[in-house]
């Protein structure tokens, strides 16, 4: 076993202390013939500090497309010639989506809007949506509505939003190559407000956007500093018409090393498979990741693209004897 894996075994597995940026670089540079050992260790860390359960979530786009921001990976930006058109979901369809999600055994349902931050119209639609879902479906509701003001944080908290998603997207040093219409610090600010409110923070990013290995490690370290409850990990799915539309799909082995590195950076976080895994990892890689640090999945479709069938993931979890986390009845 290599030095870094030995160090990680003592530091992360035994003591629960995540690896630092320099150590993560070593992990990301580790050779292919050590990948199996690396994934096995990351899995042990996950089981040790998070347990056997896997958290299942469904997501829905409440407001699609037409976003004024320019995140270069995103087909929903209004600044690119992406074929995605703007559309709002109505409340009955939102409730239906929550029901479909709950039927899979999922405990989380995340309502997402393609916006810089919510305006009055969106906030009232979200409020109406949450009330309608709560009346009919037993599921935790999460939201992802862009950058928030303190008043909006308070309002969402008062509505009973259980978790709020706001990703860092990329490392601070690469952020300017990914987004020019807002700053890394603005994102960071929203994350801090969400954490302080007592809502669970869900904060992750994308890899495979042309960042270096060092920047990948930097993103993991910056996420670890924020210490979110959940980290969704996306692999770039190059979307037609976006500035990153011509990038290559990330190599599966690099994606797996990234999963393990994120787990070794954050032993206790809910590390979720988000977009792009179908392309980057395929069925076999999906399984490797679940045995390499991942302990949460998005089932079914994404916001503008499709996932593999929910049953494929649920069957895989059953086969791996990984129990699906159940809804905690809170007071």
């Amino acid at each position: 076993m290599s030095d870094i894996l030995e160090v990680a075994r003592k530091q992360v597995l035994e003591q629960g202390v995540g690896l630092c940026q320099e150590q993560l670089i070593e992990v990301l540079r580790s050779p292919d013939d050590q990948l199996a050992d690396l994934l096995a260790l990351a899995h042990e860390v996950r089981v040790q500090w998070c347990g056997e359960e896997v958290e299942v979530e469904g997501i829905i786009s409440l407001k699609t497309g037409g976003c004024p921001e320019d995140c270069h990976f995103c087909s929903q930006s209004g600044q690119f010639t992406s074929p995605v058109r703007s559309v709002w979901l109505n409340i009955p369809e939102l409730v239906e989506a929550a029901k479909e999600t709950a039927k899979t055994g999922a405990t989380e349902f995340c309502i997402v809007a393609a916006v810089r931050g919510p305006d009055q119209r969106l906030m009232s639609q979200v409020k109406a949506g949450i009330e309608a879902i709560n009346a009919e479906v037993d599921i935790n509701i999460a939201c992802s509505l862009g950058m928030l003001t303190q008043e909006q944080v308070d309002e969402l908290k008062a509505l009973g939003v259980h978790r709020y998603n706001h990703n860092l997207e990329s490392a601070r040093s690469y952020f300017g190559d990914v987004v020019t219409t807002h700053s890394f610090e603005e994102r960071w600010e929203t994350c801090l407000m969400v954490k302080a409110s007592g809502m669970e923070l869900c904060c992750g990013g994308l890899v495979g956007m042309g960042e270096t290995l060092e920047q990948r490690a930097e993103l993991a370290a910056q996420l670890a500093e924020l210490d979110p409850h959940e980290v969704p990990l996306n692999f770039l799915n190059p979307r037609p018409g976006t500035p990153f539309g011509g990038l290559e799909i990330m190599a599966g082995k690099d994606a797996l090393r990234t999963i393990a590195a994120f787990r070794l950076a954050m032993p206790r976080t809910v590390l979720r498979y988000a977009g792009g895994r179908e392309l980057t990892l395929g069925d076999l890689g999906t399984r490797d990741g679940l045995l390499g640090g991942i302990n949460a999945v998005i089932v079914g479709n994404y916001l503008t693209t499709l996932g593999r069938p929910a049953t494929a993931d649920l069957d895989l979890l059953a086969e791996l004897k990984m129990p699906v986390k159940e809804l905690q009845k809170t007071l």
């Binding site: 699609t64 074929p83 995605v84 058109r85 079914g300 994404y302 503008t304 499709l306």
Partner: peptide
């Protein structure tokens, strides 16, 4: 023509 598309958890 470009269509208005809504993706749902289990379909579109």
């Amino acid at each position: 023509r470009r269509m208005v598309v809504q993706v749902h958890p289990m379909g579109w």
